[in-house]
Amino acid sequence: MDRFLFLTLDGVSTGAVYAAFALALVLIWRAARLVNFAQGAMAVATAYVGYAVVSATGSYWLGLGAAVLAGLALGALVERVLMRFVGHANPLGDVIVALGLVLLIQAVLGMVFGNEYRPTAVPFDTDALTVGGIAAMSPYDLWVLGAVVVVVALLALLFTRTSLGLRMRASAFAPEVSRLLGVQVSRMLTVGWALAAAVGALAGMLVVPTGLGLHPHAMDLVFVIAFTAAVVGGLDSPAGAVVGGLLVGLILSYVTGYLGPDTTPLAVLVLLLAVLLVRPGGLFSGPRARHV
C-alpha cells in the first residue's frame, strides 16, 4: 500500500512534466497542424543552455530563465527558418524536416558538449519526504508539480484573457478569416512555436535531473511518452494534454514500479496503440470526428 502511494505520487510529478511536454506538442499542433518531432531534441538543446548557465553563474534560477529564453528563440527560429518553407505537396515533409533537425541538434550538442552524461544541479532536495512514516514526494517533485501548474495556468490565462491569445486561437481555427480581420497570422505561427518551445524548454529543465541526466539523447523516450500523452488527451485539446500527461505518468509509474524500468518503452507502445485503435481522437475528443 505504501508502495502504491509512493508510485502514485511519483507518477503525478513525472506526469506533470509529460503534461507540459504534451502541451507543447498540442500548442504547435493547433497552430500549424503538425506534430513537432523535434520537440524533444529542442528541449535537450535548451536544457544544455540552461545548465551551462547554472554552472557558470551558480544560480539555478538564472539557468532556468536562460533555458526558457533559449526555447523562445529556438522555437521562433525553427519556424521562421525551416518549417515555414516546408512544401505542402508532400504531407510527410514537416515530419521529415523535424527528424532532420533532431539529428542535427543531437550532433551539434555532441560536438560542443560531448556525448557523456553531464551532472545537473537542482535547487531542491530530491530525497522523498516522509509524511506519517510513508515516503511521499520530494521537495524537487513538489517544485516540478508547482512549476507545471503555474505554466498551465499562465497559458490558460494567455489564451482566454489576452488579445494575443485571441489572435492565436483565431489564426489556428480560421487563418484566412483572421487575415481578413487584420491578424498577422504568420506572426502568430511564429509566436506559437516560440511559446511551445519555451514550455518544452521548461519541461526539459525539470525532467533532466530526475534520473535521465543531461545527454544529447536524454529526451528520446520522453518525446515518445509526451506524444502518447498528447494522443491520449487528443492532439487538439490543451486540457486533454494535461490530463493525458498525468494519466500516462501514473500508468508508467505503476508499470515501472511493479514490472521494472525496462518495460517502460513496451508499455508506452501498448498504451499508444490502444488509444489510437480504440479512441483515435483521444479520450476527451468531442463529437466532431477527426481524421487520424
Binding site: 488579445s163 485571441l166 486561437r169 483565431a170 481555427f173 480560421a174 480581420l181 491578424v183
Partner: peptide, 12 residues
C-alpha cells in the same frame, strides 16, 4: 469563427 464566442468574434 465557429470555435470563438460572439463576443470574441467581434473583438477579433
Amino acid at each position: 469563427v465557429a470555435e470563438l464566442t460572439v463576443e470574441e468574434n467581434l473583438r477579433l
